[in-house]
Amino acid sequence: MLKLTIDGRPVEVSEGTTILEACQFLGIEIPTLCHLEQLKAEGSCRMCVVEVEGVKNLQVSCATPCWDGMVVQTKSERVVSFRRLILELLLANHDTDCFNCPATGRCKLYQYAMEYGVEGSRFVRFKEHHPKDESSEFFNYDPSKCILCRRCVRVCNDLQVNHTLSLKNRGPDTWVGLPFDKLFKDSNCVSCGNCVSVCPTGALTAKAAKSFRIWEVTKTRTTCPYCGVGCQMDLLVKNGEVVGVEPAHGRANPGILCVKGKWAYHFINHPDRLKTPLIRKDGQLQPVSWDEALDYVVEGIKKIKEESGPDAIAGFSSARVTNEENYLFMKMMRAVVGTNNVDHCARL
C-alpha cells in the first residue's frame, strides 16, 4: 500500500492507483473531459491536472500513478487558473448559443465554465467549423460544438472497433470526421450510438435530445430486452415515458450498446401497445374487463381439462419475460393445469 496526501487528507491506495482514482475514493471532484473509465487514459484534455509537490509540471491525474509519500494539491491557485485557461481556450472556438443546444443541462463544458467562473474567453476565434451532419436516423453531428476530447473516436475505434470516426488533419485544424468526408448515412456507421453516449457536449446528440433536459429525467438501471448478451443500461424517464437509453458498465458490456439497445425503445410508449384485455366476439377481438377475460380463460381451461384431460392443454412460455414469470408459467402449467406440455420458443 502507498501512503499519500491529497489536499491535506491522508489516503492509502494500492500500487498502480491513479491520482484520479485516489481522489474519487476520497470524494474529491476532479473535472475531466477526455477520460473514459473503460479505456486507457490518454491525458489529452488536461482538465484533470493537479499539482504534485516536487514536480515542476502539472500532472494529469487520470494517467499519473500514485507513489508513496506523494503530496498532491487538486485545487491550488496554479491548478485552478490552468483549468480556467483550458476552458477559455475551448470556449474561444465553441459555438455558445447554448439556448439552442440539445446538450443544455448535461454539457460538461458549460458545467465546468460555470463551476470555474469562466464567463467568456479572452481569446479569439480562429476556426472555420465543418458543416453539420444530420444524415443519421438517430443522431446529429455539429462540429461547432466539438471540443476534440476524442472520446467518440476512441469509442468507435477501440470499443466498437467500427472505424467510422477518425481524427482528420493535424494541430489546430484537427477535427473529427468520417473517411472521405462522407455523411453518416453513407458510411459504414452501424448506428450503435456509443459516440453519442460519450459526447460531453452538444457535438453528437440524439435526435430526440431536445425533448427533455437531463434534470427532468430519472434513470433506472436495467437489462436490455433484446439479444442474449444482456447489456446493462439506464432508462431515462420523463413524465412516465422512456425518452432515452444510456449504456451502463455491465460485466458483458464495457459501457457500450448496439443500435437496438440504444435506440429501439419506442415500442415501450407506442400507441399500438395492448391496453385492455380482448375477447373474440362475433369473430372480432373486443375490449373487455380483466374479470371477464380471466374468467373466460379459467372456464375455458377447466372445460377442456374436464373433457379431454390436462394434456389437451399446452403452454408456450417466453424467452423475453423474466425468470420469475417463466417459473410461474411452468408452475401454473404443471402444478395447476397438470400437464408437462410447457415449452418456449427459444429454439429460434
Partner: peptide, 20 residues
C-alpha cells in the same frame, strides 16, 4: 502551430492564440 499534433488542448488551441 503547424507542427502541433492536435492531441492536447493547450497546445492545439494555445499555439494559434500565441501566434495571434
Amino acid at each position: 502551430v503547424k507542427e502541433s499534433c492536435g492531441k492536447c488542448c493547450p497546445c492545439r488551441e494555445g499555439n494559434p492564440q500565441l501566434l495571434h
